[in-house]
Nucleic acid binder design. Structure first.
Length: 443
RNA sequence: GGGCGGGUAGCUCAGUGGUAGAGCAGGAGCCUUUUAAGCUUCUGGCCGUGGGUUCGAUCCCCACCCCGCUCACCA
């Protein structure tokens, strides 16, 4: 007994073959007049590609050794009224593939595999985290203050309370409140929403893993991240060698490590053919001059830290194909990270790049309420100069820190982007079942 | 938002300033082990939308819509 959709028909007068798909596997069905009732035989002649049928019969191999069901009876289940895309070229038009994903799934078997891989990835991550004693939680998606990241939020309104609400841009501040509450290992895998551009690496809603781990710092997170990603890659793809476009990405530990300021200075030296020092990046005037020479646009009000990060991204970003930790960020661009004890202008933070884009962001969490308040105030000042992405003040979060938050390392991992790397998908839309599209007139 | 490319049959794609083409899909016919089955035959189109140039526009020009890539913003 089998049931599924007819994806191919080859018929010869009084006999024929159907290929039946259950969405994952395919099997051939052999029908012949003398093996079926007259009614089922007449039915078989009316069937089209796309119809859903059930088949009863015995398994056998044809003379070409194709495993087949010799049909003894047929059951008609559903009609496909609209013609399916062509069998050989499949469905190529990406607009239809994304807007009508069901067609994409019917016609292009690899699509199903990508989404199975996505689910396997999330399961593997959960297994690793649970194995380390992390508690999975859910925190608010709708927040009165959109905190935990620097991004523009979606705004909505609650009628009964007559209040402005934001779709969250990150769960960070809620998860850290939980560490204050004694949940020393905690994580969430869920959607974030950011009201920003759409590209091959950005969808307005995307899935993020965030985890917080009390009593470890960012160094420990680096080794843990190596272990996590290598394990996930092995479990999901069977290997730590991943084809990605023209490259082969090696997900085995250890990953490359680049300290941001020296790496930016070095690349700038090469680019300009003149010696650039880390100190040039630390001074406002020298950093500005350097950005100008490199053709890097600097928004008004940017300090040397912001300029350094912009210079780094313009010089390195897309070259970081192999997994690379970029670490030790300027404090100015990291309002929630803990400073290095030996250098208050630098925080214990890293971003992990794979395939030329950022996949993870992590730091030793700032748990000093006085310093946190000062950072928020600094952000408010930047907001006043027109930076829409500056972080808002969150009084309750500061109050939570005043109760004493254990030192902790925290990390966010972009699940969609990680799945892009694992599944060799050039666009984030290839790993999101229903990516956001502008509605058309008929929808 | 800027730049570049694209939009022709249900799907994959050709093509031309003068009545619009192929393959697959669909209809009819033949065929009882095929696997992109085969053969015969038929059907199928506001050539993205709206203006303009022209005797005539699917083609040339302008605007707009949608998609992709890319830059900017960001993860």
């Amino acid at each position: 007994m089998a049931a599924g959709r007819i994806v191919s028909v080859r018929s010869f007068g009084k006999a024929g073959f159907f290929v039946l798909s259950d969405g994952r596997a395919r099997i051939q069905v052999y029908v012949r007049q003398d093996a079926l009732s007259e009614r089922d035989y007449q039915l078989s002649k009316l069937l089209d590609v796309g119809d859903q049928i059930g088949v009863r019969g015995h398994l056998f191999r044809t003379k070409t050794n194709e495993l087949s069901i010799g049909a003894a009876s047929l059951q008609f289940l559903a009609k496909c009224f609209l013609p399916l895309p062509e069998k050989w070229h499949g469905l190529q038009d990406v607009e239809i593939r994304y807007r009508q994903r069901y067609l994409d799934l019917i016609v292009n078997p690899d699509v199903r595999r990508v989404f199975e891989l996505r689910t396997a990835t999330v399961s593997a991550i959960r297994d690793v985290l649970k194995g380390h004693g992390f508690l999975e939680v859910e925190t608010p998606m709708m927040q009165p203050i959109a905190g935990g990241a620097l991004a523009r939020p979606f705004v909505t309104h609650h009628n009964a309370l007559d209040m402005k609400l934001y779709m969250r841009i990150a769960p960070e501040l809620y998860l850290k409140r939980l560490t204050v509450g004694g949940v020393e290992r905690v994580f969430e895998i869920n959607r974030n929403f950011r009201n920003e551009g759409i590209s091959t690496r950005h969808n307005p809603e995307f899935t993020m893993l965030e985890f917080y781990w009390a009593y470890v710092d960012y160094q420990r997170l680096m080794t843990f991240t190596e272990e996590l990603l290598a394990t996930v890659a092995r479990q999901v793809t069977g290997s730590t060698e991943l084809p990605y476009g023209e490259h082969t990405i090696n997900m085995a530990a250890p990953f490359r490590r680049l300290s941001m300021r020296p790496a930016a200075a070095e690349a700038a030296s090469v680019r300009l053919g003149a010696s650039v020092s880390v100190d040039d990046l630390r001074g406002l005037d020298t950093a500005r001059a350097l950005a100008a020479k490199l053709g890097v646009e600097v928004p008004k009000g940017s300090g040397p830290g912001k300029i350094t990060s912009l210079i780094f991204e313009s010089l390195w970003d897309t070259d970081l194909i192999q997994p690379t930790f970029v670490y030790d960020f300027p404090t100015e661009v990291s309002p929630l990270s803990k400073q290095r004890p030996d250098d208050p202008d630098t925080v214990e933070r890293f971003e992990l790049y794979i395939g030329g884009f950022e996949v993870a962001n992590a730091f030793s969490e700032l748990n000093d309420p006085v310093e946190q308040r000062r950072r928020f105030e600094e952000q408010l000042a930047q907001h006043a100069t027109g930076d829409h992405e500056a972080h808002a003040m969150d009084e309750d979060y500061v109050r939570a820190l005043e109760y004493g938050m254990p030192p902790a390392g925290g990390e966010g991992v972009g699940i969609d982007r990680l799945v892009q790397v694992l599944s060799n998908s050039p666009s984030i839309r290839d790993v999101i079942l229903f990516p956001l599209m502008r509605p058309r007139g008929d929808e």
